[in-house]
Amino acid sequence: MSNNMKVPLSILDVSPIVEGGSVKQSLQNTLDLAQHAEGWGYNRFWLAEHHNAPNIASSATSVVIAHVASGTNTIRVGAGGIMLPNHAPLVIAEQFGTLDALYPGRIDLGLGRAPGTDHLTAAALRGSRGSNGHDFPEQLEKLRAYFDPSRNEYVPAVRAIPGEGAEVPIWLLGSSDFSAMLSAQLGMPFAFAGHFSPNFTVPAMNLYRSNFKAGVLDKPYGMVAVNVIAAETDEEAQYLATSMQQLFLGFIRNNRAPVPPPVRNMDEVWSEHEKIALEHQLGSSIIGSKETVREKLAQFIEATKADEIMVSSYIYNHQARLRSYEIISQLM
């Protein structure tokens, strides 16, 4: 095994709000992380759309993308992703057309079809349009036509300005087989949410590759998100990871809260049943020292055949979070 990863590494961020912290501090930390990531050689820095979550500050995703892009110079910045059923395609075309005009050649647009929230909040977001994702392929085609009006058989009555003519790469995101198959059929790049849907990662990636037809791309390009927490020792990394474990435990208990500080013993926090449930959701997480992460990440890449890895992490202390990403970057 070589000492370095053979695939690019990128970052998926949600501007996590920690216990005792603020939205302002979270957004400052996100920019700080992106600036360091650029220097460490990460390929791209994506923000994710979530709503009604007291631990996530990236809900106005396009705004946060502009914040990060304005404070960096070369790293690609994008959405991982925009939940398209929450928005009119015209609005997304205008937003990302604007971002592309401001930061040409650096903006990515990853699209998902889930709400990124609970049903009540989804209803508040979507209003009378009432999309539940069933028309995602049609919404996607409308969005692509706003960027490239030649996709329309007739001259459109409404144009996306900014947006028209913008060459923003569109990725499809998924945590199941739907977007894997759709991106394969359309010949588009595909990113899988392995950080919270580990059991479907390999089947979805295999489905994408085996059904791929040349389209936007000549050959498949698949990226997989995975939780990675690195520290100087395995023990320290496991300690830092208890913040993520407690956070996801809150999801199971339907008790969402800011990212909590780490604890020394999770057995005092979870039940045996909850521990097993979390293992299903966080089972692919890679936690450990540099050498441990190197070995496990190489195994993960071999299993998924990923062309690129997108690293996600919930770490309470910002300096520890920076150090984790720095250690991971040394594997490139």
Rank of each mutant, 00 (worst) to 15 (best):
M1I: 14
S2M: 15
N3C: 14
N3T: 15
S10K: 02
S10W: 01
L12F: 11
G20K: 06
G20I: 05
S22V: 03
Q25K: 13
Q28L: 05
L33G: 01
A34V: 01
H36S: 13
A37K: 06
G39T: 12
N43Y: 15
L47Q: 07
A48V: 14
A53T: 14
S58L: 05
S58R: 02
H67I: 12
A69K: 08
T72I: 13
I75A: 00
A79Q: 09
G80A: 15
G81Q: 08
L84C: 09
P85F: 01
N86K: 10
H87A: 10
I92W: 06
A93F: 07
Q95N: 11
F96L: 03
T98V: 11
L99T: 09
A101F: 04
P104S: 01
A114K: 05
A114N: 05
P115G: 02
L120M: 14
R126H: 01
G130M: 08
S131I: 01
N132E: 14
F136K: 04
Q139T: 04
Q139K: 08
Q139S: 07
L140M: 07
N152A: 13
P156K: 03
P162A: 05
G165M: 02
A166D: 08
P169V: 04
F178V: 15
A180L: 03
G187K: 06
A191W: 03
A191S: 11
F192K: 09
H195R: 07
P203R: 07
Y208A: 03
N211E: 12
V216I: 13
D234N: 11
E236S: 03
Q238N: 12
Y239M: 11
Y239I: 10
Y239F: 14
L247A: 11
N254F: 11
N255C: 11
P260Q: 05
P260W: 05
P262F: 06
S271V: 13
S271T: 15
E272C: 10
H273V: 15
E274P: 01
K275I: 15
L278E: 07
Q281G: 12
L282T: 02
I287S: 05
E291H: 11
E295D: 14
K296R: 15
L297S: 07
L297Y: 05
F300G: 02
I301A: 02
A303D: 13
K305I: 10
A306R: 08
D307W: 10
E308N: 09
E308M: 04
M310I: 12
S312A: 15
I315R: 08
Y316W: 12
N317I: 08
R323S: 06
R323L: 01
S324Y: 01
Y325D: 04
Y325R: 04
Q330I: 10
